[in-house]
């Protein structure tokens, strides 16, 4: 794992396909009430693959099923049908957690413990030896910059500090797969920047990272691939750079062209009935894509054809 982790993410293009870390097959989840009556269909036949070494963004408006997906992958929820595999093992299996780090939406930690005790406790849950625990928790506290507050109980922490200790807790086992639920929520711009840098750094270490967020700008900055969910259905899936390319528009900007050459180009354009603005494929922001998909889905509900 650590070997292939060193490979840069461009290696995806190489002939050998990286290992599939998360795979969901026909994953569906129906929430029922006490009497077993159907309340919500939170997920409808989701097929996803997350490959090793990539940062995968799971996007969608509130109630789109992204948190449900994450919880099923973690084994906090059981699928109604279909299955989720993590490292090739069923998501309900406990042993898969050995290689997973999870940063929950809000850091659900024991508020009466301090940072050192918290990390020590979670370290013990991974069956890590005392010496190793001490070393790692010291490292992690330094990394998230909480050294000055490590002996204070978590209930005295600000939201940003809680986020940081939450992240440290998720990294205590040096996981291969990181599941981050809204990693930048509650962080100030500097904190957000640091978090994003950290995510990229972890990726550089070869970790696979799944980010679940509505902070689209953040996702746009870090993710290699994204999936957009809406009302429990997969609406878009692909590489961020290609998804954001507007393919039916070409932008051309030229320099150093002789007037004759320019006339020639214009003639070609005129021949095809076009007018040159600039020569390029412009990109839109992820926000625009997101809103387009949401609007489109509202206009035409149902499965959207995804081309990758």
């Amino acid at each position: 794992m650590a070997q292939s982790a060193a490979a840069p993410h461009h290696a995806r293009a190489a002939s050998a396909e990286p290992e599939v870390v998360i795979e969901t097959r026909n994953l569906s989840k129906v929430y029922r009430d006490f009497w077993g009556r159907q309340k919500v269909r939170a997920l409808k036949a989701l097929d996803l693959e997350v490959r090793q070494g990539e940062i995968f963004g799971l996007l969608g408006p509130n109630g789109s099923g992204k948190t449900t997906t994450l919880k099923i992958i973690l084994g906090l929820l059981f699928p109604t049908s279909g299955e989720a595999l993590v490292f090739g093992r069923s998501a309900t299996e406990v042993t898969k957690n050995e290689r997973i780090g999870y940063l929950p939406e809000e850091s659900y930690l024991y508020k009466f413990l301090n940072a050192v005790d918290t990390l020590d406790f979670y370290g013990r849950l991974f069956n890590i030896s005392a010496e190793e625990r001490r070393r790692r928790s010291k490292e992690l506290i330094e990394m998230v910059g909480l050294g000055w507050a490590q002996r204070r109980p978590l209930k005295e922490y600000s939201k940003g500090m809680t986020r940081r200790i939450g992240l440290a807790q998720a990294l205590i086992n040096d996981p291969d797969l990181l599941l981050l639920d809204e990693p930048t929520s509650g962080l100030d711009p500097i904190g957000t920047r640091e978090m994003k840098d950290l995510i990229l750094k972890l990726k550089a270490q070869g970790k696979t990272i799944v980010v679940c967020s509505h902070q689209l700008a953040d996702v746009q900055d870090v993710c290699d691939r994204i999936a957009i969910l809406y009302q429990g259905e997969l609406k878009e899936l692909g590489r961020v750079d290609s998804l954001l390319k507007v393919r039916d528009v070409t932008q051309v900007q030229m320099r150093g062209m002789s007037p004759a050459a320019q006339a020639e180009v214009r003639a070609v354009l005129a021949k095809h009935g076009g007018e040159m603005v600039s020569w390029d494929n412009p990109t839109m922001t992820l926000e625009e894509l997101f809103l387009t998909i949401v609007n489109e889905s509202q206009a035409r509900p149902g499965k959207r054809v995804i081309k990758e």
């Binding site: 406990v94 957690n97 050995e98 929950p104 809000e106 659900y108 849950l125 069956n127 807790q169």
Partner: peptide
């Protein structure tokens, strides 16, 4: 209720 159990059961902890 506080969901602190999330951070426990997502570790390799057996019920």
């Amino acid at each position: 209720k506080n969901r602190t159990i999330y951070t426990i059961v997502t570790k390799p902890v057996r019920s």
